[in-house]
Design a protein around this nucleic acid. Sequence first.
DNA 1: AAGACTAAAGTCAGTTAAGGTCAAATGGAA
DNA 2: TTCCATTTGACCTTAACTGACTTTAGTCTT
Lengths: 153, 153
Amino acid sequence: MSNISDLIEQYLKSLISNSPRDFVEIQRSQLAVRFSCVPSQINYVLTTRFSTGHGYLVESRRGGGGYIRIVKIPLDQRAGLILDISELIGDAISQNDAEGMLGRLIEEELISLREARIMQAAVGRYPQLVEAQTQEHLRAAILKTMITAVLRD
Amino acid sequence: MSNISDLIEQYLKSLISNSPRDFVEIQRSQLAVRFSCVPSQINYVLTTRFSTGHGYLVESRRGGGGYIRIVKIPLDQRAGLILDISELIGDAISQNDAEGMLGRLIEEELISLREARIMQAAVGRYPQLVEAQTQEHLRAAILKTMITAVLRD
DNA sequence: AAGACTAAAGTCAGTTAAGGTCAAATGGAA
DNA sequence: TTCCATTTGACCTTAACTGACTTTAGTCTT
């Protein structure tokens, strides 16, 4: 567990949850100094852990006085919810993104931990049975069907 | 009796029983060095001695900072149950039988209706993505993993 | 206002660090 | 001998990390 990316992720999430609003602004280079890594690693963390699928929106500005703003987007309970989620999932999804999605549903208390565990199991890899590319499509299809099944009504 | 696999098995089990929690995290390559064997032998030990049938759950992560986590499923009535169910499912199952299985789990109040709906969605047909025969194997694999995931603890 | 300079952040391909898979070779017991 | 468990190694996939190069925005001269 001792990789820097995880530490940066935790740090950013704690910043957000401690902030009165649902966002933070950071400076990429400063953060890189704090964690003794190259600046581009911050981008790596952002793309692997703060994607829209994970429920975040990242805005930034270059040049002097530049910044990166990370906004947490709540999944609100309106009618189009399932549609939005389906759209986010698309017709193919990696295991990582699928798990991010599940994490988000838990946070929003739309599904329980047990339910998430079930879905996580279904969204795993089955290499001897399904080829890698097909797997991503299948995963998307199953995930969408499961989420629809549990969130309807 | 003094084959390496047995030694690795013993070692891992002692690690688990000496741990305050019911799991351990190891690094495959390090363990391989400790026992002077190739890394893939660790996988062999895991699949032959730490399967769900043996009451364990193995999770892992690749890449930098990767690890293997071995979780011991607490040995109560349910452990035997998982074993029985796994055996019933076998390595292939039709959609119909899968749904029957889920029906029974509901009756026994081992899973909720919502949970059943999720699982039902996951064991549906995905004809454009997976061939019929493969489908039955995949369904069995997913169903077993899901049931293990939800009935543990 | 234009151009030069400076201060950010972005991109992307390449390297390193894990673990996974599979099939072939080996070895021991019935 | 035959069969099954074990052992091995070649090759694959995934995740993390790095650094050179690019782009954008602000600031300072002239």
